[in-house]
Design a protein around this nucleic acid. Sequence first.
DNA 1: GTAGGGTTAG
Length: 497
Amino acid sequence: MASSASAAALLPLPLPSCSSSEDSDDGKHLPSPPALEANTSPAQQQKQKQKRRRQERDYNVAMKALALDGDVDEVVAVFAELKRTAGEGGDGGPPPNVLCYNTLANALAEAGREGEALKAFDEMLASGVAPNASSQNILIKMHARRLEFDLAWELIHKSGVEPDVGTYSTLIAGLCRAGKVVEAWGVLDWMLEKNCRPMVQTYTPIVQAYCRDGRIVEAKLLMAEMERLGCLPNVVTYNVLIRALCDGDRFDEVEQVLMESSTKDWKPSTVTYNIYMNGLCKKGRSTELKWYAGVVAYNTVMSSLCEMGKWRGIMKLLTDMIKKGIEPNTRTFNILVRSLCVGGKFSLAKSLIHSQGFAANVVTYNTLLHWFYYRGKLTEANRLISVMLENNVAPDEVTYTIIIVGLCREGKFDAATAYFLKSLTSGLSMDVLTVLLNRLVYADKIWEINRIFDGKDFVPDYHVFDLTIRTFCRAGYCHYRTFYKLNLILDTMLKRK
DNA sequence: GTAGGGTTAG
């Protein structure tokens, strides 16, 4: 995979502590074209460097804000702009510094665009910018998400970048998410051996792992231990605990924990209240909005009202929040779209896409598509797909799933298969394939299945074989009279290998 | 100014 190749690419480190923004006069990246260079004094050059550094910081802050907002495309655009301004002198100019590359790569990784994140790091190395501990941590995070812990270890041991608290914390978080709490404790011991002091961020994932397993007693014990060690649990740690208490219907204890917050030296945030309220909503105990409610709280309640079919109440809340000066976001909007669909107001829901001040995203289109198919409005669905593509909104796995399910239900297996083949251009999704195969096999559409594996753009691997055989067997095709159909498909698949 | 733990939409 590309990830291991890139991990290897990070191994030989050029100059471990040197970032491009530092004043290393190695002459590798002169900021200005020669002509300008000739008649600028050292003082002026210094000034230009400072200006560039400020510019990089500003761009970096902007990228971070955009990433927080979930607008990754815009992050990519800002980064490109940063590179462009460097090249205005004519000969390319200095590359962005390591922090900017980190921000870019992290935003991409967080958005699930890991291939692009790795490409960003490759580009960084190619421009002679040395990675730092944060770059390494971002890579470790990506490895951990794919459960490639061996690669994560290899990176730590061979990169030459000294692991920091963040490195260990990232690894611990990844292990905890994968349910490997014992290994996480191992890493904690290891860092203590290396005299690296843990932080709240190091312990919190372990608290969370306990909470997820319903081991609340152990979670609380660990939090007590943190206090003893002088590493006080903070609002995030308590949020984890409160969520677990909500899931367990232990709302009295939530109140208790909140009451004690002032003496325990932490302050509940809007996130805390959002978790609490979400817990109450899920148990059907509250739709009352308190004074501290922000946009997320409104979204939660509106969404819960939508589940209950009270879509008129949603409109009331929308006007309510606008009156209070709380700005609705894309999610608010999507909840509104969904509630309008639930209420059968399709044309109104559709018209919202073109309304000003709202950028429809892939979720918006998915919501509408789902309902169009659900109500058998195939022409509308087709038209919407065109609009979506015209507006440069890329379909995701959910989109393809909705389309495929919708078409199959109408008996349009051929079209559904065509969409699956189209989805391959953005990579194979096993989820999408599972959905399609299920429908085709149960409908006995052997010809279409053959078509999936007959194309030149799809070479089945072990998982695909496994899935196919299982699906056929579950549908009863492993009977001797029908087995030849599965054989036919397997033949086609083997031809491709 | 980058990384590492927590909330809401299909």
